[in-house]
Design a protein around this nucleic acid. Structure first.
Lengths: 240, 240
DNA sequence: TGTTATTGTAACATATTGTTACAATAATAC
DNA sequence: GTATTATTGTAACAATATGTTACAATAACA
């Protein structure tokens, strides 16, 4: 990671022009669902963690590495969900402001002011297990609840909406591979995850039976929290 | 459409570099499922209908117009499903050959030999209701059964596979908007469509009940085909 | 040894899907 | 007309899956 504010930004000749990526990183801690948002230096601009694709790396590698560099989070399982290519999606004024506030030469980075098409990815992680670190362009990187998001730049709010739709459609299939929950978790935590993501509540008994019927959970020892009640079992996902 | 073989190809300054699109157009006639494949002039190269994005048009418009120009098919409902960005997906030798065989100057079209990321779309239509016309770069445009596809250039076979997977996951949701079947169709035709796309068979009675239970079908008059048996009703999709 | 809160499951009701059976035809042959 | 044939529409029952209610099995603590 680069921490020198006045160092050179991305060089035109190293990157594919017109191509960007953005990521919607959902974080969950057993109770709350949030997403990760960057705030750019002295601009008041909020954005999803994103970046560009180097000429000599695959799209997938660019996204994995790029998100890691911008957030400090490693081993994210990122899933591509849509590519955004409207004419009005790119805001060169915002980009110019970001360059300016970071002491980057506009002329040398003119290619960044051109039109970009963005390939969007999402990830689900347990936000208590990671410690996001903003990169040199950003002032801060913070977890925001979906109902308390700051206004996001360009079409990033639309990207978040589309990510949510996609994740809701694929939750049953995708939850296993994602690191949304700790390795071992209780049925209540799993249900909380489902409820926060789907935006609806489920009956405890039916939910428990449905999950156990999938045969994708392994039951472990009980978890003694100190509460005056029967202790819940811990579960983990079967790796298949 | 341009039919002059020696006319100028796409001009670098009009297009976004590094960005392409490809389409998997599924055709169905009540019995068979096929996809549309182009063969390039004197190259023996087979490819999905694709193209590039102009600087002043949205990705969606580029795809809609581009597919129309390459196939002659209008009013396609195209659905984006994945963006392909591996390093080895682009084959500049193949592109060079296509330019050469079409009498296009390599130097003037050098930008086409560079790396491209491709956004892929699929469509479902009734192939008896359209008459595909190859554009000036292609020798022919033909419907091919999935099990009789010619070897496709670059990563186009992977693109077809991914399209099939996507369509199978979303058939219930997407069949309405797609023009896969004629406006009015019998339950048997609908079942055939499902079976060909899903690659499995369904029990007639359960299928019929399930479809009627969706409440998205309107029943019309009976269809008298001349067969010595009870005539089936015709149905159409409810527009909602 | 009660009391309390929460979890795991059984039991039953309801809804969905799978399977079998059969009546209702269109066309045709007689 | 009447019998024959192939196919369609639906009912009836069985097997699964899901929704709902009830209740016993606990951990911790008073």
């Amino acid at each position: 990671m680069n921490t020198d504010k006045h160092s050179l930004g991305p060089k035109k000749e190293d990157y594919l022009s017109h191509i960007a990526f953005d990521s919607v990183i959902f974080g969950f801690n057993g109770k709350q669902l949030k997403i990760l948002v960057l705030e750019y230096q002295n601009t008041g601009l909020f954005a999803l963690p994103g970046g560009f694709v180097k000429r000599n790396e695959s799209l997938k590698d660019a996204v994995t590495k790029g998100v890691m560099e911008r957030t400090g989070i490693e081993d994210l399982y990122l899933e591509q969900f849509h590519t955004f290519g409207d004419l009005d999606r790119f805001d060169s004024k915002a980009m110019e402001r970001i360059l300016e506030m970071n002491g980057l030469d506009i002329k040398a980075h003119e290619w960044l002011l051109d039109r970009f098409i963005s390939i969007a990815y999402y990830a689900l992680i347990n936000f208590e297990e990671v410690n996001p670190i903003p990169d040199s362009l950003a002032d801060s990187i913070e977890w925001y609840s979906l109902d308390e998001l700051p206004p996001l730049m360009m079409d990033h709010e639309e990207i978040v909406q589309k990510a949510l739709e996609t994740i809701r459609e694929n939750l049953d299939k995708k939850l296993l591979g994602m690191n949304l929950l700790p390795t071992k978790f209780t049925m209540k935590e799993l249900q909380n995850a489902y409820e926060k993501i789907m935006g609806e509540t489920f009956k405890r008994t039916a939910f428990q039976r449905r999950m156990l019927a999938t045969k994708s959970l392994v039951r472990h020892e009980k978890l003694f929290t100190g509460g005056a009640h029967r202790a819940p079992y811990l579960y983990s996902f079967k790796i298949k």
